[in-house]
């Protein structure tokens, strides 16, 4: 389940990257909507968002990438609350996202208990709100989050913001097992996964592996669109092989 920043490094290349993800056998694309103040993100994704916004990328450009691949595989948007509210409110956000073929949305700054009307509105419009569970989430709250989950549950592997880590915490396996026992939907793990080996390790204990900063960094470091597409394709193929797919 690879992540990409919509409109980065430019709208045209981002559509090519989305197609490259599909070609590499991704099961789902997590498509980031650039936001000026992404509190859950580490420096790599933050910089990509800043760069996309500086180049004038708007929500419509992200939807363009969504439209380009949503016929090939499921697309889940990753959008902060401000993007969901926009100027026209969550109903308009849901309508535009669904029309572009998105099936769900991850809102990293909309935790359980906060603004439930917005969550209900998105879900009832048919755009599944994928909730997050963190290593710090108490068990009772985990259960409640699982009960409300639509699409899948996103388990945050480590305490902190998005970004590659050398090692994943030993407690991860227990956390994922606990959540899987409670959830009726698949359980995916993200944050900190930056190598094919880590992906394989997490793939053994969960239903899905989300890779974000690593891929965004490959795009940021590439010299032009062709190199960016080649770099992410190569990495995803290695990952798929390591995961035995």
């Amino acid at each position: 389940m690879p992540y990409m920043m919509g409109g980065f490094p430019d709208p045209e290349t981002s559509i090519r990257i989305a197609n490259a993800y599909a070609d590499s056998g991704a099961d789902l694309i997590e498509l980031g909507v650039p936001y000026s103040d992404p509190l859950a993100d580490g420096p790599v994704i933050h910089e990509a968002a800043t760069s996309a916004l500086a180049a004038g990328v708007r929500f419509e450009d992200v939807l363009e990438a969504c439209r380009a691949v949503s016929g090939r595989l499921p697309v889940v948007l990753m959008a902060y609350t401000n993007m969901v509210l926009g100027s026209q409110g969550p109903a308009a956000f849901a309508e535009r996202s669904l029309a572009a073929g998105a099936c769900g949305v991850i809102v990293p700054d909309l935790p359980l208990g906060e603004d439930e009307p917005t969550r209900d509105l998105l879900n009832s419009a048919g755009l599944s709100v994928v909730p997050l569970i963190a290593p710090t989430t108490p068990e009772k709250r985990q259960t409640e989050i699982c009960r409300l989950a639509a699409g899948f549950v996103y388990v945050v592997s480590t305490v902190g913001t998005t970004g590659e880590r050398n090692e994943l915490p030993a407690e991860l396996q227990g956390l994922v097992a606990g959540v899987s026992a409670e959830a009726d939907v698949p359980v995916a793990v993200g944050f900190g996964i930056g190598t094919a080996e880590q992906a394989a390790e997490v793939g053994r204990i969960s239903d899905g592996v989300i890779i974000g900063s690593k891929l965004v960094r490959l795009v940021a470091d590439a010299d032009g669109g062709d190199q960016a597409v080649a770099a992410v394709s190569r990495f995803l193929e290695q990952t798929r092989r390591a995961m035995g797919g």
């Binding site: 509190l39 359980l112 906060e114 603004d115 997050l132 569970i133 963190a134 710090t136 945050v156």
Partner: peptide, 12 residues
């Protein structure tokens, strides 16, 4: 007001 923050911070 409210608490529009990552889930990680809610318990804190």
């Amino acid at each position: 007001g409210g608490r529009y923050v990552p889930e990680t911070l809610i318990p804190a």
